[in-house]
């Protein structure tokens, strides 16, 4: 595997959203700082999801290239990732606008790192997670394996509660869908496996104030205000 020091994003203090499609919202991304696992509230988790592309001959580099180029096509239908560049590259900021049961959530990601066999997202303040998500591909016993590995704390006490009650399973669904879609693009109908390790069970209560950035709350308030304005 080649590695290239130039494949990290450059320094960024506040995220800048440019070149969005009409109708896409940069709410909860524009002007936000990145939030790493150090800045989060809840227990520290490392979850791993993987799928084996059995029966096909695809190099890890080819899979990663396809994943970076067509990333939004592998996501669940209710969530849209909008970005200005055709291919996810380090420094690229993309917004995520999800709509489920009438509730709209706006957040985003920044591509933090990329090499021939992996790329990683950093997450903005207000996202449910504070941390990073690494997407990678590797060879094992002659078969290429695609992997998603979120490394995170939940960002605030509200998200932590929602994660325990509901979003933990929702996250599993998202990455199962993503990996199955990705494998399907190469003609593979595979099974996604997963594991989870809690690296730190403690909550960082000094970070409870992160709730002021909560993208869910901001999105809901924005939706209500927009609705009121439309009725006037």
């Amino acid at each position: 595997m080649g590695r290239d020091e130039g494949r990290w994003a450059g320094p960024v203090r506040r995220l800048q959203v440019d070149g969005l499609d009409a109708g896409a919202s940069g709410l909860n991304v524009q002007g936000r700082r990145l939030s790493g696992a150090v800045q989060g509230f809840g227990p520290l988790w490392q979850k791993t999801y993987w799928i084996r592309l059995s029966g096909v001959n695809v190099e890890p580099e080819v899979l990663i290239d396809r994943w970076q180029t067509d990333y939004p096509t592998f996501w669940p239908d209710y969530s849209h990732l909008h970005r200005a560049l055709a291919r996810l590259e380090p420094g690229d900021v993309a917004v995520i606008n999800a709509n489920q049961s009438g509730l709209r959530l706006s957040t985003g990601i920044m591509v933090m790192y990329a090499d021939a066999r992996s790329f990683a997202f950093a997450l903005p303040e207000g996202h449910i997670f504070a941390g990073w998500i690494t997407f990678s591909a590797y060879e094992e016993a002659g078969t290429t394996v695609a992997q998603v590995q979120p490394f995170f704390r939940t960002s605030d006490p509200l998200y932590d509660l929602l994660f325990s009650l509901w979003f933990n399973r929702k996250e599993d669904q998202i990455w199962h869908h993503t990996l199955r879609s990705l494998a399907g693009a190469f003609g593979v109908d595979g099974v996604v496996q997963q594991s989870a390790t809690c690296l730190d069970t403690r909550r960082q209560w000094r970070k409870a104030g992160n709730i002021r950035h909560n993208a869910g709350i901001h999105s809901a308030v924005h939706q209500v205000i927009s609705s009121v304005r439309r009725r006037r």
Partner: peptide, 20 residues
């Protein structure tokens, strides 16, 4: 020589153990 994004995660894990 080089550190990738997994390496950064490793430092966070080390930090957690130290803080404990």
């Amino acid at each position: 020589d080089y550190m990738n994004s997994s390496g950064i995660g490793l430092l966070v894990t080390l930090l957690v153990r130290a803080q404990r």
